[in-house]
């Protein structure tokens, strides 16, 4: 076994997942170093969410190995998986907030159900998490009464309240305007440094991801076609990476062509 400091916190190898005839993951692998923010990019439908859900133990991969902190998560090994769930949080794309519970109850729930803390400590820690995400004025409101951004922050508060070592973010910026997108990435980066957790973010927002993350991976056709630093990503000459990275340029070219009245080139996207 490698040295604990250099060994990745999460090691994923050869993940396969099929839904019926449709193979979504075909051997996806990823290493997530401790304390870093890793972004998994990919176009919609490339299997990013499925990949992340396999990591979070929501879906069972058909094949492949997932090791957390040097220990393999086997389907039958309840103890290791329970340990993993205690140290890992998952932020759903849909937030998956409990709509019949108030903001405070939502945040308190994981503590209440998985720890032995007293009610007073639970309330204190939940309020602290709400305060950190600037939601302490809304503790008695229901998720349905909140805006999309507030719901996202509430979901993040619920994810970090257990002080996890690994947080998995599924499309945290989906459906947000550019300013909010920046804010969400800033928030993730800020709390990631503040609490020292390791983060895996799945997104298709290239510019934000390149600025905020320590490492970038690109998922295409069920496998990782690129894995490296943002600088390496920007410099890469790989075809898929270029398409993805330079999509705005491609749009510019297409629009220019339209304005010139040329026939529309079918863009492969």
């Amino acid at each position: 076994m490698a040295d604990a400091a250099t060994e990745p916190l999460l090691h994923v190898e050869g993940l396969h997942k099929r839904f019926g005839e449709h193979a979504v993951l075909a051997g996806a692998s990823l290493d997530v170093p401790r304390g870093r923010l890793v972004t998994v990019l990919g176009r919609s439908g490339a299997g990013k969410s499925v990949f992340l859900k396999c990591l979070a133990d929501v879906l069972q991969p058909d094949e492949g190995r997932i090791c957390f902190d040097g220990r393999e998560l086997k389907p039958g090994d309840a103890a290791v998986r329970a340990e993993f769930r205690r140290r890992c949080s998952f932020l759903f794309q849909s937030n998956a907030l409990f709509d019949s519970l108030t903001a405070l109850e939502n945040v308190a729930l994981p503590l209440e159900q998985t720890t032995d803390l007293s009610d007073k400590e639970i309330t204190e820690r939940s309020l602290e998490a709400l305060r950190q995400l600037e939601l302490d004025g809304h503790r008695d409101r229901y998720p349905g009464q909140m805006s999309g951004g507030m719901q996202k922050r509430l979901a993040l508060a619920r994810a970090i309240v257990t002080r996890p070592e690994l947080v998995l973010f599924d499309e945290p910026t989906a459906g947000l305007d550019p300013l909010r997108r920046n804010a969400v990435f800033a928030m993730i980066a800020k709390y990631q440094r503040q609490f020292g957790f390791t983060a895996v973010v799945v997104t298709h927002d290239v510019p934000e991801a390149l600025v905020a993350s320590d490492r970038v991976a690109l998922l295409d056709k069920g496998r990782m076609c690129f894995e490296g630093t943002p600088a390496e990503f920007s410099a890469s000459s790989d075809g898929v990476v270029c398409d993805f990275r330079d999509s705005t340029d491609a749009l510019g070219r297409t629009l220019a062509a339209i304005r010139r009245g040329e026939a529309l080139q079918p863009e492969d996207s």
Binding site: S94, A96, L97, P110, T162
Partner: peptide, 16 residues
């Protein structure tokens, strides 16, 4: 609806 909106999956990821 809780299954649909992933609330049940969320409980499971929390270890609840």
């Amino acid at each position: 609806i809780q299954r649909n909106s992933e609330q049940i999956a969320a409980l499971e990821t929390m270890g609840v």
